[in-house]
Design a protein around this nucleic acid. Structure first.
Lengths: 333, 333
DNA sequence: CTGTTAGCGCCTTCAC
DNA sequence: GTGAAGGCGCTAACAG
């Protein structure tokens, strides 16, 4: 075993005291030039690495911010994660990730683990713990919720307006001339799924149409469920000329189901997805979809945390969605 | 600010000493039943959470294992990560992730960050730091390299035989009757890409064919590069009836390029990818691909670390690849 | 079985 | 500017 070099060792080597070493390390107080150089040299020579634990213990700051992810669903979450990473990489803070797997129990444990590790802030991406439980877990640490809409915590919530997004996606199909529009919803326990469905219905109603339950299939955000949804839809015998899927994975699955049946996209049916995941541009035909600025949202979340830590007044930005038109939709004459 | 409750507080409340509390906490030494109960009750009441930093400082163990990922390339890496998470979730250890982005500098920094955080072990997924540098960084901590093949560190390397995999993929196409087989390689700095290409050539030679440089295109593992590769291949005017892409993303891009040109898959050209990423089953047509047991590899890596920490003798298992046949290949008569 | 005594490595007052 | 002393919360010997 290698003996670890401590602040003490380098103090001896540089003929100064521990305090001085600490000072050059943190730049908290000016230190005489030559001493500083000596210290830095010693650190280099002995290959000194400050012990993050000791620091955290003594200083009260862990310089880490905890991120709780949910690995199910759409690549949207991955992108948010990337945003967090990149925003933090320029700072002294490191992210530490724990996965909640869309399971309340696991999620709670994940948060506890993070708190035990003394994270200085928390970013929760997705998740479905009730607000009350969250409050007790968080312990009043800085926090930002991504893709959530917690009552009483609006200031800390970062998400696009999914109702609006669903509305616009449907509206888009309506404007292309479609009248019989099906929807493949996500898991109805997720706020995203609920709101997108709501937007879908709203658009239909506004166009003077009545949402037909027979044109609604519930999936679970997986590709496979998209296949099943289309098969179910087809089996019901109610005709439709377009589909709005609550995420790209399911849109993907839907497209495959049509392929299997010999139904052409977009000649026979149009598809619009959600998330603009990278692969959607490479499907055949390329998938039209609704894009959320996921990376930016992750970065914004990280910045929000940093500002809270700094005690600054902060406000999370608003993010608009955007429809990315590709060949999977076509006007139907 | 909430005052933190410490081991001392609960010791007072339970009328025992700090040590006893520590003992029930870690179950290191039997403690009298009634005292134990009292302590546990006190912990519950005061909502006690042990401070991981203090623990780490005092005990020398951080109970975290660091994972360095590279977010570029194929979803293979994501799956490995999942495997690590799941294998570790049953233990007292938590993974902490840092991203190296396939950049030597960033990767080195990532490893240093992890070391500073006193991780008890390291899992490096991908990456391309030279062995020499790695050695000094690691500081003789337990380590497992996934998808690497470091000379002198064979015992700690976990990867499939990519030469063999490339060989079999090509062989598979040969057996279908193809003779003019193109290859879209990955970034030639990555060992995976190099080995897969080598396997491809080996198979051709063994079949009595000479690898034609005009049938080789270099991509960068991204979908987009798959598109470009096919366009480049087509522009060269050398006919081919099948393509082996070094990962599914590029295979995806290739498929799109053919679609754009009106070239049918698999009627006109067959495609085989690599990684068996989930989406590959949902392409049109579903993609034939080479599967690595990625989750299992991640889990095995985690177990390897744990065994090293425990000082046990360990040996990383061998993982075979497997060809998953789907509709994107067809015999050519 | 249990309380007491030392630190773990570092930061932060304090006097100098 | 700089060194000495104290403490962060917990674990790990040590005696009892």
């Amino acid at each position: 075993m290698k003996k670890k070099v401590t602040i003490q060792d380098i103090a001896r080597k540089a003929n100064v005291s521990k305090s001085t070493v600490s000072r050059v390390l943190n730049k908290t107080t000016p230190v005489e030039e030559n001493k500083r150089v000596a210290v830095e040299a010693a650190m280099k020579q002995l290959n000194y690495r400050p012990n993050a634990f000791a620091r955290g213990l003594a200083g009260g700051q862990s310089m880490t911010i905890g991120v709780v992810t949910q690995n199910i669903g759409s690549p949207f979450y991955d992108a948010v994660t990337q945003g967090v990473i990149s925003a933090l990489s320029a700072t002294e803070y490191s992210p530490i990730f724990v996965d909640g797997q869309w399971n309340r129990g696991i999620e709670a444990t994940a948060i506890r683990t993070l708190i035990n590790r003394q994270v200085d802030g928390l970013i929760l991406i997705g998740g479905n713990l009730p607000a009350a439980e969250l409050v007790t877990l968080i312990e009043s640490k800085p926090v930002v919720f991504v893709a959530q809409r917690l009552a009483g915590w609006e200031k800390c919530c970062l998400s696009v307006d999914n109702v609006e997004a669903g509305f616009r996606a449907t509206q888009f199909l309506l404007e292309l001339g479609h009248r019989e529009i099906a929807h493949i919803a996500g898991i109805m326990e997720h706020i995203d799924a609920i709101e997108r469905l709501e937007g879908y219905r709203k658009a239909l109603r506004q166009a003077g149409l009545t949402p037909d339950p027979k044109l609604l299939a519930e999936g679970n955000f997986s590709s496979q469920s998209g296949v099943l949804a289309v098969e179910s839809l087809l089996a019901r015998g109610v005709p439709f000329s377009a589909i709005f899927a609550a995420n790209d994975e399911m849109a993907c699955g839907a497209r495959l189901a049509f392929y299997r049946r010999g139904i052409r996209v977009p000649e026979d049916v149009s598809i619009i997805g959600f998330d603009n995941q990278p692969a959607s541009a490479f499907m055949t035909p390329p998938l039209t979809t609704v894009a959320q600025p996921s990376r930016e949202m992750g970065a914004a979340a990280a910045r929000g945390i940093l500002q809270q830590i700094a005690g600054e007044d902060f406000q999370l930005p608003n993010f608009p969605v955007q429809i990315v038109v590709r060949e999977s939709v076509i006007r139907r004459w």
